[in-house]
Design a protein around this nucleic acid. Structure first.
Length: 211
DNA sequence: ATCCCGAGGG
DNA sequence: CCCTCTGGAT
Protein backbone atom coordinates (compact mmCIF):
# COMPACT_ATOMS: atom_id res chain seq x y z
CA UNK A 1 0.00 0.00 0.00
CA UNK A 2 1.26 3.42 -0.89
CA UNK A 3 2.39 5.59 1.95
CA UNK A 4 -0.11 8.28 1.09
CA UNK A 5 -2.90 5.72 1.32
CA UNK A 6 -1.64 4.56 4.73
CA UNK A 7 -1.89 8.10 6.06
CA UNK A 8 -5.33 8.52 4.56
CA UNK A 9 -6.57 5.36 6.26
CA UNK A 10 -4.97 6.30 9.56
CA UNK A 11 -6.47 9.80 9.57
CA UNK A 12 -9.84 8.57 8.37
CA UNK A 13 -10.21 5.99 11.12
CA UNK A 14 -9.16 8.20 14.01
CA UNK A 15 -11.06 11.23 12.78
CA UNK A 16 -14.21 9.17 12.99
CA UNK A 17 -13.53 7.40 16.29
CA UNK A 18 -11.44 9.98 18.19
CA UNK A 19 -12.39 13.37 16.72
CA UNK A 20 -11.09 15.38 19.68
CA UNK A 21 -8.13 13.52 21.23
CA UNK A 22 -6.36 15.14 24.16
CA UNK A 23 -3.38 14.47 26.37
CA UNK A 24 -4.10 12.25 29.36
CA UNK A 25 -1.90 14.37 31.58
CA UNK A 26 -3.95 16.45 34.00
CA UNK A 27 -3.23 20.18 33.94
CA UNK A 28 -5.03 23.51 34.13
CA UNK A 29 -2.53 25.96 32.63
CA UNK A 30 0.66 25.99 30.50
CA UNK A 31 2.94 25.95 33.54
CA UNK A 32 1.30 22.80 34.88
CA UNK A 33 1.45 21.12 31.48
CA UNK A 34 5.13 21.97 31.07
CA UNK A 35 5.83 20.58 34.53
CA UNK A 36 3.83 17.41 33.87
CA UNK A 37 5.50 16.77 30.51
CA UNK A 38 8.98 17.17 32.00
CA UNK A 39 8.00 14.63 34.64
CA UNK A 40 6.49 12.23 32.10
CA UNK A 41 9.78 11.05 30.57
CA UNK A 42 10.00 7.26 30.79
CA UNK A 43 6.98 7.22 33.08
CA UNK A 44 3.28 6.55 32.57
CA UNK A 45 0.83 9.45 32.50
CA UNK A 46 -1.20 7.65 35.13
CA UNK A 47 1.64 7.85 37.61
CA UNK A 48 2.29 11.50 36.82
CA UNK A 49 -1.38 12.29 37.46
CA UNK A 50 -1.09 10.66 40.87
CA UNK A 51 1.64 13.01 42.07
CA UNK A 52 0.86 16.30 40.31
CA UNK A 53 -2.13 17.40 42.48
CA UNK A 54 0.07 17.80 45.56
CA UNK A 55 2.93 19.22 43.48
CA UNK A 56 0.71 21.86 41.82
CA UNK A 57 -0.89 22.75 45.15
CA UNK A 58 2.54 23.51 46.61
CA UNK A 59 4.01 25.08 43.44
CA UNK A 60 1.22 26.83 41.59
CA UNK A 61 3.41 29.05 39.43
CA UNK A 62 7.05 29.40 38.28
CA UNK A 63 7.83 31.89 41.06
CA UNK A 64 7.29 29.47 43.94
CA UNK A 65 8.97 26.58 42.11
CA UNK A 66 11.99 28.76 41.31
CA UNK A 67 12.37 29.60 44.99
CA UNK A 68 12.09 25.98 46.15
CA UNK A 69 14.91 23.68 47.16
CA UNK A 70 15.68 20.70 44.93
CA UNK A 71 15.25 18.47 47.96
CA UNK A 72 11.71 19.65 48.60
CA UNK A 73 10.71 19.20 44.96
CA UNK A 74 12.27 15.75 45.07
CA UNK A 75 10.02 14.83 48.00
CA UNK A 76 6.96 15.43 45.79
CA UNK A 77 8.23 13.46 42.79
CA UNK A 78 10.21 10.62 44.35
CA UNK A 79 7.94 7.95 42.85
CA UNK A 80 8.53 8.92 39.20
CA UNK A 81 11.46 7.90 37.00
CA UNK A 82 14.70 9.81 37.44
CA UNK A 83 13.47 11.93 40.38
CA UNK A 84 16.87 13.50 41.08
CA UNK A 85 17.34 14.73 37.53
CA UNK A 86 13.77 15.89 37.23
CA UNK A 87 13.82 17.80 40.53
CA UNK A 88 16.87 19.70 39.30
CA UNK A 89 15.27 20.27 35.91
CA UNK A 90 12.02 21.59 37.39
CA UNK A 91 13.72 24.12 39.64
CA UNK A 92 16.07 25.13 36.82
CA UNK A 93 13.16 25.45 34.43
CA UNK A 94 11.27 27.70 36.83
CA UNK A 95 14.32 29.85 37.51
CA UNK A 96 14.98 30.28 33.78
CA UNK A 97 11.36 31.28 33.21
CA UNK A 98 11.56 33.87 36.00
CA UNK A 99 14.96 35.24 34.96
CA UNK A 100 14.70 35.17 31.18
CA UNK A 101 11.00 35.12 30.32
CA UNK A 102 9.39 37.34 32.95
CA UNK A 103 7.55 34.45 34.56
CA UNK A 104 5.73 33.52 31.34
CA UNK A 105 5.99 30.18 29.53
CA UNK A 106 7.98 30.67 26.29
CA UNK A 107 6.09 30.37 23.00
CA UNK A 108 8.79 29.35 20.52
CA UNK A 109 10.60 26.06 19.99
CA UNK A 110 14.03 27.58 20.59
CA UNK A 111 12.99 29.38 23.78
CA UNK A 112 11.23 26.31 25.16
CA UNK A 113 14.24 24.09 24.39
CA UNK A 114 16.51 26.54 26.16
CA UNK A 115 14.83 25.59 29.44
CA UNK A 116 16.48 22.92 31.62
CA UNK A 117 14.79 19.55 31.19
CA UNK A 118 13.01 20.61 28.00
CA UNK A 119 14.11 18.85 24.81
CA UNK A 120 12.60 18.77 21.37
CA UNK A 121 9.81 16.38 22.31
CA UNK A 122 8.63 18.35 25.36
CA UNK A 123 8.85 21.66 23.50
CA UNK A 124 6.72 20.29 20.67
CA UNK A 125 4.10 19.02 23.11
CA UNK A 126 3.73 22.50 24.59
CA UNK A 127 3.49 24.16 21.17
CA UNK A 128 0.98 21.59 19.97
CA UNK A 129 -1.24 21.26 23.04
CA UNK A 130 -1.17 24.86 24.29
CA UNK A 131 -0.95 26.79 21.04
CA UNK A 132 -2.35 24.20 18.61
CA UNK A 133 0.70 24.61 16.38
CA UNK A 134 1.31 21.92 13.73
CA UNK A 135 4.34 20.34 15.41
CA UNK A 136 4.84 16.59 15.86
CA UNK A 137 6.31 15.51 19.19
CA UNK A 138 7.89 12.09 18.67
CA UNK A 139 7.96 9.99 21.82
CA UNK A 140 8.38 6.25 22.23
CA UNK A 141 4.80 5.54 21.12
CA UNK A 142 4.85 7.77 18.06
CA UNK A 143 8.21 6.32 17.06
CA UNK A 144 7.14 2.68 17.40
CA UNK A 145 3.65 2.98 15.89
CA UNK A 146 4.85 5.04 12.92
CA UNK A 147 7.27 2.30 11.95
CA UNK A 148 4.81 -0.54 12.43
CA UNK A 149 2.08 1.12 10.38
CA UNK A 150 4.52 2.09 7.65
CA UNK A 151 4.02 5.81 8.29
CA UNK A 152 7.77 6.26 8.68
CA UNK A 153 10.49 4.27 6.89
CA UNK A 154 12.76 1.96 8.86
CA UNK A 155 15.60 4.17 7.70
CA UNK A 156 14.16 6.87 9.97
CA UNK A 157 16.10 5.72 13.02
CA UNK A 158 15.91 8.90 15.09
CA UNK A 159 12.93 10.81 16.53
CA UNK A 160 13.79 13.77 14.30
CA UNK A 161 13.78 11.62 11.18
CA UNK A 162 10.39 10.15 12.11
CA UNK A 163 9.09 13.65 12.84
CA UNK A 164 10.10 14.89 9.38
CA UNK A 165 8.61 11.85 7.70
CA UNK A 166 5.26 12.33 9.46
CA UNK A 167 5.20 16.06 8.83
CA UNK A 168 5.68 15.49 5.12
CA UNK A 169 2.44 13.52 4.85
CA UNK A 170 0.03 14.71 7.54
CA UNK A 171 -2.02 17.82 6.68
CA UNK A 172 -1.19 20.61 9.12
CA UNK A 173 -4.70 20.81 10.49
CA UNK A 174 -4.43 17.15 11.56
CA UNK A 175 -0.92 17.25 13.06
CA UNK A 176 -1.83 18.11 16.69
CA UNK A 177 -4.52 15.44 16.68
CA UNK A 178 -2.34 12.88 14.88
CA UNK A 179 0.17 13.18 17.70
CA UNK A 180 -2.47 12.09 20.21
CA UNK A 181 -3.85 9.42 17.89
CA UNK A 182 -0.46 7.76 17.55
CA UNK A 183 -0.01 7.82 21.32
CA UNK A 184 -3.50 6.46 21.98
CA UNK A 185 -2.90 3.65 19.50
CA UNK A 186 0.50 2.85 21.00
CA UNK A 187 -0.72 2.95 24.55
CA UNK A 188 -3.85 0.84 24.24
CA UNK A 189 -3.51 -1.34 21.12
CA UNK A 190 -0.10 -1.26 19.47
CA UNK A 191 1.76 -2.06 22.70
CA UNK A 192 5.53 -2.38 22.62
CA UNK A 193 5.70 -5.95 23.94
CA UNK A 194 2.42 -7.67 23.15
CA UNK A 195 0.50 -5.59 20.64
CA UNK A 196 -3.23 -6.30 20.57
CA UNK A 197 -3.37 -7.02 16.87
CA UNK A 198 -6.61 -8.98 17.16
CA UNK A 199 -8.50 -5.77 17.93
CA UNK A 200 -6.44 -3.41 15.76
CA UNK A 201 -8.56 -1.54 13.20
CA UNK A 202 -5.51 -0.91 11.01
CA UNK A 203 -4.15 -4.46 10.98
CA UNK A 204 -4.78 -4.96 7.27
CA UNK A 205 -2.02 -2.57 6.30
CA UNK A 206 0.31 -3.05 9.28
CA UNK A 207 3.87 -4.04 8.40
CA UNK A 208 4.47 -5.95 11.63
CA UNK A 209 1.40 -7.99 12.49
CA UNK A 210 1.96 -10.34 15.42
CA UNK A 211 0.02 -13.55 15.75
C1' DA B 1 13.27 -8.85 31.96
C1' DT B 2 10.95 -5.04 29.64
C1' DC B 3 8.61 -0.84 29.16
C1' DC B 4 6.67 3.89 30.31
C1' DC B 5 4.54 10.71 26.10
C1' DG B 6 13.38 11.76 27.35
C1' DA B 7 17.09 14.83 28.38
C1' DG B 8 21.84 15.89 29.35
C1' DG B 9 26.44 14.86 29.13
C1' DG B 10 30.63 12.51 27.40
C1' DC C 1 27.31 7.98 18.50
C1' DC C 2 27.18 6.22 23.37
C1' DC C 3 25.94 6.25 28.41
C1' DT C 4 23.43 7.49 32.71
C1' DC C 5 19.61 8.72 35.39
C1' DT C 6 15.91 5.80 38.02
C1' DG C 7 10.80 4.05 40.14
C1' DG C 8 6.80 1.40 39.37
C1' DA C 9 3.91 -1.78 36.63
C1' DT C 10 3.46 -6.08 34.09
Amino acid sequence: MLKKERFRRFIEYFTEHYPEPQTELNFSNPFELLTAVILSAQCTDKRINQITPALFARFAEPESLAAASVDEVFSYIRSVSYPNNKAKHLVGMAKAIMERFGGEIPTTLADLQSLPGVGRKTAHVILSVVYNEPTMAVDTHVFRVSHRLGLAPLTATTPLAVEKSLMAYIPKVHVPKAHHWLILHGRYICLARSPKCSICPLLDFCKYPQS
